[in-house]
Design a protein around this nucleic acid. Structure first.
Lengths: 210, 210
DNA sequence: ACTTTACTGCACCGTTCAGGGTAGTTTCAA
DNA sequence: TTGAAACTACCCTGAACGGTGCAGTAAAGT
C-alpha cells in the first residue's frame, strides 16, 4: 500500500500531512498513531513529514493551533430590546452549534486523547469553560441594565451551558451519537430557556408541551 | 528499587497488582503504563503479574469489572409523601455523590483513557446515561401518581443530570478541580431543584438568593 | 542547461515494551 | 520434614516506533 500517490500537482504536502494527522489523532488517539501511519495516509514519505515537522510533538502542536483558530471565538449579538427569551434562545443555538461543530469535536478529542492525565491545558479548551464565557458576559450585561435581577451569573451560566453540553457535546464526543434531530434539539433548547428564565427572571412560563 | 518487599504476610498479591494497576492506569493512561511499572509499584515481580493475568489486556478487564461492581447501582428511596422538592434534593445529592466518588472517577478515567476512539463500551459507563436512569424512573413514578404533570421524562432527566455533571463530574474528571465546597454545592443543588420543579411542576419558586 | 528545492525510498539506530523461560527461593499445609 | 505452590530475580526475544542519514529523482525557476 504505497506505490504511486494519486496525481497531485499542488505542493500542499504540508497541509496533507496535517489533515491526515488530525484524522488519525482524533480517531485513534495520539499514542496509537504512528508517524509511519500518518505518512502513509497522507501519501507522503515519512521523511517529508519530518521535513515539515521536527517531531511528532511539533506536528501535534501545529494541529492544535490550527484547530483552535478554526474554532474561533463565540460572538453573540449584543443585548437588545427584544424579549430575553428570544435572545437567549439564539445564544443557546449558537453555543450548541459551536460545541457540536466538527472542528470543536475534533479539537476536543485530540486534546482529550493527549491530556487526560496531565491537566495542564486539558481543561482550558475542553471542559467548555472557556467558550461559555460569552454567555456569562451576556447575562451580566442584562443584569447591569436591570433586565435580569441580581444572581450568581457564573453559576447560572454553568447551569445553562451544562444542560446543553450534556445532550449535545458529551454524547457526541464520547460516542458519536447525536441525541436529537434538528427539530428535537430546538424544542429542547426552548425548554431550557423557558426553565432558565422562569427561575431567574420570574417569567410566567407556559408549561412545556407534553 | 527492588530488594525486600515490605513485610507482607498475607498472599494478597493478586489484589496488590490490581490496586497498583488501577492507580497507574487512571493516572497515566493505559498505554503509558508498563507492566514493569505495575510490578514495581505493586512490590511484586513481573512474573507474578503474568502468573495472575494472562496479558495487560486481561488485567485491564479485571480492573474494569471490579470497578463497575464497586460503583454499584444507585438506589433512591422510593417516592413518598414528602414535598417533591426535598426528595429531589436528596436524589440530586446522591447522584452528585456517586458521580464524584473516587471509584466512579477512576472508572471513568480508566475507560476514557482506553476507549475514546472505540465507542464500544465507552459510553455505557462514562457519559452518565446509565447512572441517571434511576432519576428518570423516579420522575416517571411521580408522573404516574399524578404528583407531576406529564412531560418528556427522559429529556427532563437529561437536563437535571446535566446541570449536576457539568459542575461536579466533568471538571473533576478532566482536571482535578472541584467547583464547590460542601456548602456551595448544596446551594447549587437547591437552585437546580428549584429551577427544575418551578418549570416542570408549576411550583411557586421564591427567587434564589442573590 | 544548471541549480535549487521538495520529495522519495530505504536502511538504520536506539529504546521501550509485552511477554516468555528458568532456576532458585520462600511459604505453608499436611 | 517434605513437597507443592507461589513468588522472585534475571535474562531473553521480537516487534513497534520515533527519529536520522543519504543517495537519488522530479520539477520549477533562472
Amino acid at each position: 500500500m504505497s506505490t504511486q500517490a494519486p496525481r497531485r500537482v499542488r505542493t500542499g504536502k504540508r497541509q496533507d500531512v496535517m489533515t491526515a494527522a488530525l484524522n488519525e489523532f482524533q480517531e485513534h488517539g495520539f499514542l496509537e498513531t504512528s508517524m509511519d501511519r500518518i505518512a502513509e495516509v497522507a501519501h507522503v514519505s515519512k521523511r517529508t513529514v519530518y521535513n515539515h515537522f521536527a517531531s511528532k510533538e511539533a506536528l501535534f502542536e501545529a494541529i492544535l493551533d490550527e484547530l483552535i483558530v478554526r474554532c474561533g471565538h463565540l460572538e453573540f449579538p449584543p443585548l437588545n430590546e427584544e424579549p430575553l427569551e428570544d435572545q437567549l434562545l439564539v445564544i443557546g443555538r449558537m453555543y450548541a452549534e459551536l460545541v457540536t461543530s466538527d472542528d470543536f469535536i475534533k479539537l476536543s478529542r485530540v486534546v482529550l486523547s493527549r491530556f487526560i492525565q496531565s491537566p495542564r491545558m486539558a481543561g482550558t479548551a475542553v471542559t467548555g469553560r472557556e467558550p461559555q464565557k460569552p454567555i456569562q458576559n451576556w447575562i451580566e450585561t442584562a443584569q447591569k441594565q436591570g433586565r435580569l435581577p441580581p444572581f450568581d451569573a457564573a453559576q447560572a451560566t454553568t447551569q445553562f451551558a451544562g444542560m446543553i453540553t450534556s445532550t449535545e457535546y458529551w454524547p457526541r464526543l464520547i460516542q458519536n451519537e447525536t441525541a436529537f434531530d434538528e427539530q428535537g434539539r430546538d424544542q429542547y433548547l426552548k425548554s431550557i430557556v423557558s426553565m432558565f428564565l422562569g427561575h431567574y427572571a420570574h417569567l410566567e412560563t407556559p408549561t412545556s408541551p407534553a
